[in-house]
């Protein structure tokens, strides 16, 4: 990605350009999932679980990504369960130091015919608060920083509503039934994505966990390639696809969806990933969470940032939502390292 002779950009301009794989003044720092930590919650008095359910707290905690850490994006949707809550899944909201989760052992659906989207889905407090938080962030941060929303893909939603094991078995036993489920869920992904753009989001993350830890690359092609291509056509703005785990075997397909970016995991090498996607989609990632950001120090973080930049990754950040006990010092190191890398490379020219 070219960075030569580019006038200084705002964070928002930088991210929007990177999403289009256009020249930037420096590589943006971005986490399209979540950088919420206990330290940040304490700093602005916006703790979980309330920060996942109240728009003002959600916006306040999300803003710290820009104001405290120096990232170029803010992401108010820390969880992957807002839609599931609105659909009627049982949620374990937890406390400040733990992530809320869907009780997938108590699924709400077992067959496509069970899928009923509640009439109040968009006005449910747990979906509405995201829309309101995006509006607050846009009002308070103006055009300085990129605001990223999040709309869950139908594959991930299937895990939540059918239970992971049952959904995966269905996908093996009855592909037609599985496709009918995905088809019934896809409009939700589109509608919630559009609502977030209308509220002021600059991009949306679309997590759809067809990870190599669970399913094959052929599965991605069979079940999701067409759907993800459809999302890229129907959602009017940049989409960042997020899939955890090893995904190199499906990155070629992902690069063909027309989505703007792919948020990739540290199980995939930066260079091997760039070699697969070439210049067809931007890559975001892939600083390791549990071993580096959580358990190591700034030096190790810097090393991984440099590896990404050396490979030409378009946006640098953690590989996924970070552990809540991650230190601010390690997170701040990411933008510092990015800036230093660019200084060194500008000086070298």
């Amino acid at each position: 990605m070219s960075t030569q002779n580019i006038a200084p950009m705002t964070s928002r301009e930088r991210v929007l350009a990177a999403l289009k794989r256009e020249p930037v003044d420096r590589t943006p720092v971005c986490n399209p999932t979540s950088v919420a930590t206990v330290e940040l919650m304490d700093l602005v008095d916006a703790p979980f679980p309330d920060a996942n359910r109240k728009a003002d707290l959600m916006a306040r905690l999300a803003a710290t990504s820009y104001t405290e850490l120096g990232f170029d994006t803010v992401m108010p949707v820390f969880t992957i369960i807002q839609e599931s809550s609105a659909l009627g899944c049982k949620i374990q909201w937890e406390k400040k130091d733990n992530w809320p989760t869907v009780r997938m052992t108590e699924p709400i659906w077992s067959k496509p015919e069970d899928i009923k989207i509640p009439a109040d889905f968009m006005s449910h407090p747990d979906t509405r608060c995201v829309i309101d938080a995006i509006k607050i962030l846009r009002k308070e941060l103006g055009d300085e920083v990129a605001i990223i929303g999040k709309t869950m893909g139908p594959w991930s939603q299937g895990y939540h509503c059918f239970g992971v094991e049952r959904f995966l078995l269905m996908s093996r036993d009855d592909p037609d039934k599985t496709k009918r489920c995905l088809d019934k869920l896809k409009d939700l992904t589109v509608a919630y994505g559009i609502a977030q753009f209308e509220a002021g989001a600059d991009a949306v993350t679309l997590p759809d966990h067809a990870t190599g830890d669970l399913v094959s690359g052929q599965y991605y092609d069979r079940y999701l390639l067409d759907l993800h291509t459809e999302f890229a056509e129907r959602i009017p703005g940049p989409i960042i696809l997020h899939i955890c785990g090893r995904t190199v075997d499906r990155m070629d397909s992902i690069a063909r969806t027309g989505m703007s970016a792919f948020h990739y995991d540290s199980k995939n090498g930066a260079q091997e990933s760039m070699d697969v996607v070439k210049d067809r989609i931007a890559l975001v990632g892939n600083i390791n969470n549990p071993q580096t950001l959580f358990a190591r120090g700034p030096e190790e973080v810097r090393k991984e940032v440099y590896e990404n930049l050396d490979a030409g990754i378009h946006m640098v950040g953690p590989e996924c939502a970070i552990p809540l006990q991650t230190s601010i010092e390690n997170l701040k190191e990411i933008p510092l390292a990015v800036k230093d890398w660019h200084k060194e490379h500008t000086a070298a020219h």
Partner: peptide, 14 residues
């Protein structure tokens, strides 16, 4: 060896 994935293993486990 990644010849099969979790859905297939779940069916075998079943």
């Amino acid at each position: 060896e990644a010849f099969i994935f979790v859905p297939e293993v779940l069916a075998c486990a079943r």
